[in-house]
């Protein structure tokens, strides 16, 4: 990712060029937005119908053994555990309900976006995924505390608020490889510039992905803007995700530079906007310990 000794002028020009490449691809509709995997897409489409057929959804899910195993694991977890163990996919779908099944499918598909064969990107994406999971967990628990909607929607919104980042990272990797193949350039981005390009462009990529995956409006709203609160709908999932994002950044679970003043302001505003006192925030952040543990 980094090349030492390159003139600063060249570097800033490169950052601008890369941003322009991504912007042009988006404008010309040339950006390859990953599709939801076939199994996931078919299930999500079926689950939209409130009277979906459990049998139909189950039979599709059974064709993806990894997804099916995840579903069974979740249905038998302490959070959902009933008196008896669930042994079939249809039982798992019944126990979890449409909302949780959909969340699991989207989460599983999103996780794949954060995988990379490139060691450097895989490392950065792994930390980025940890940040996203942390925001998701805090947003879900704060939603339960405030009563601001469905905790599951807030979880999904938190998980996907930065979903454009791994895609931009992958585009940058492609460009870097193309330049290397053509032997056109020996200068490449340093870590800070790499993150800068991603931060400046990821929302433009994340939104079309959200549209393509037919994510709920509340999730799309969060992907579109996670920087400023919406006063019109104070205790909404997107505001809770914004607040959770700022809290998680304060905790140091983030990739890239954080403007401390802006972030502290987001926390201060969020407390009043959402009507949360210090005790409630502490409870909402209790789940971070498990996220940290899992990350290490």
């Amino acid at each position: 990712m980094s090349v030492a000794g390159a003139p600063a002028h060249d570097q800033s020009k490169l950052v601008e060029q890369l941003e322009a490449i991504i912007a042009k691809k988006i404008a010309n509709d040339q950006l390859v937005i990953p599709a939801l995997p076939a199994v996931a897409a078919r299930c999500v489409a079926l689950l939209k119908n409130p009277d979906f057929s459990t049998r139909e959804v189950s039979s599709i899910l059974e064709s993806d053994p990894i997804l099916a195993a995840k579903l069974l694991k979740l249905a038998n977890s302490a959070a959902f555990g009933g008196r008896n163990s669930v042994t079939s996919i249809s039982q798992a779908v019944t126990r979890l309900g449409a909302s949780h099944v959909k969340s699991l499918i989207v989460e599983s598909s999103a996780r794949k976006l954060f995988e990379s064969n490139d060691r450097r990107i895989a490392e950065a994406n792994s930390r980025l995924w940890t940040h996203s999971v942390a925001v998701a967990v805090v947003a879900r628990d704060l939603t339960a505390i405030t009563g601001g909607g469905e905790p599951e929607t807030a979880y999904l919104a938190g998980l996907l608020h930065d979903v454009g980042k791994p895609i931009v990272a992958s585009i940058l990797l492609d460009v870097e490889r193309a330049l290397q193949d053509m032997r056109k350039r020996t200068v490449w981005l340093n870590d800070q510039e790499w993150i800068e390009v991603i931060q400046r462009t990821h929302r433009k990529v994340g939104v079309p992905l959200g549209v393509r995956w037919e994510l709920p409006d509340m999730v799309l709203k969060t992907v579109r803007d996670c920087e400023e609160y919406d006063n019109g709908d104070r205790v909404s999932a997107s505001n809770i995700v914004r607040f959770a994002n700022a809290l998680v950044k304060q905790e140091g679970l983030y990739v890239g530079p954080v403007n401390k003043d802006d972030n502290d302001a987001l926390v201060m505003i969020g407390k009043s906007l959402l009507g949360l006192d210090d005790g409630a925030i502490k409870r909402g952040m209790a789940g971070l310990a498990a996220v940290r543990k899992q990350a290490t």
Binding site: D261, A265, M268, I269
Partner: peptide
Amino acid sequence: SESKRSIVAGLMK
């Protein structure tokens, strides 16, 4: 009624 983070950040300073 101001909730712009840049303004609140300035006030915090």
